[in-house]
């Protein structure tokens, strides 16, 4: 049963692009599954860690005129810092680490479809925590840099502060931020993954070489755009919450 038309075209397994468990273990009486998402994340983590260690070793004997690996690393770091600088102004140095980490992780996750992995960002359990982290940072900045009175006034905003009938709506729109932020990334990467799985699963004999063009669009272009958008929106929300501080 299930996707009848898809199945009738011969050996197409809708599980090939879904999250599936690899093995399970018992964690304080709960059944916990290790899925292919965990495996992908682990591989990406190992890749990034090895790269970081190599760069760290290289930078112990850094030169004034960079070449080779040092050049690449400086390029990456300058690019990431430049993005943060451009949209956060003088608050930027505090957020280099967070945005940079987020950017590198999401980008490598999104293009890991090229390595034959299932992109971890196509699992809502990966993107939602990132959305929640952003949410926490935004509201930490908001509480820290605005006076309670101004905060209250802001939350009742179209109405005067003594008439808080707009408060619930503002709170709901605040709560919608991490959900829409994470769903956007998740749905984009998931749709790309499913599209590629459909192409490979349904057009088995015809899918020779030309799906590379689709990979360029779905994995590289879409992945890079969504990474940029996620980081950009995170920075926009944070700098809005900080105000001028």
């Amino acid at each position: 049963m299930g996707c009848g038309i898809l199945l009738s075209s011969g050996g197409f397994d809708s599980n090939s692009f879904m999250i599936h468990g690899i093995f399970k273990y018992s964690f304080f009486g709960h059944e916990v599954w290790i899925t292919n998402t965990h495996v992908s994340i682990l591989i990406i983590l190992i890749l990034l860690t090895v790269f970081a260690i190599l760069v760290g070793n290289r930078f112990k004997k850094a030169e004034m005129e960079p070449k080779g690996l040092q050049n690449v690393a400086e390029l990456i770091v300058e690019f990431l810092d430049g993005i943060v600088d451009k949209s956060m102004g003088k608050a930027a140095p505090r957020y280099y680490n967070y945005i940079g980490t987020l950017f590198v992780f999401i980008l490598v996750s999104n293009i890991s479809g090229l390595l034959g992995l299932r992109p971890p960002t196509a699992d809502y359990g990966v993107t939602l925590p990132m959305g929640i982290l952003t949410f926490i940072l935004v509201h930490y900045a908001e509480v820290r840099y605005t006076k309670p009175k101004d905060l209250w006034k802001d939350k009742c905003s179209p109405m005067p502060p003594w008439l808080p009938i707009w408060l619930p709506i503002n709170i709901i729109s605040d709560l919608a931020v991490p959900i829409s932020l994470s769903l956007r990334l998740f749905a984009n990467v998931l749709s790309g993954t499913i599209m590629m799985a459909l192409v490979y699963g349904l057009l088995k004999w015809i899918a020779l070489a030309w799906p590379a063009a689709l990979h360029v669009y779905f994995d590289l272009f879409s992945g890079a755009i969504q990474t940029y958008v996620f980081c950009m929106l995170t920075m926009t929300y944070i700098s809005n919450a900080r105000g001028d501080a």
Binding site: S180, L183, R184, A187, N188, L190, S191, I194, I225, Q226, Y228, V229, M232, L233
Partner: peptide, 20 residues
């Protein structure tokens, strides 16, 4: 432009998500 387009895309993605 890309930022705005990506935000505008969200509603369409919700429809896609429902379909999925």
């Amino acid at each position: 432009m890309l930022l705005g387009q990506a935000v505008a895309e969200t509603t369409g993605l919700y429809g896609l998500l429902v379909a999925m």
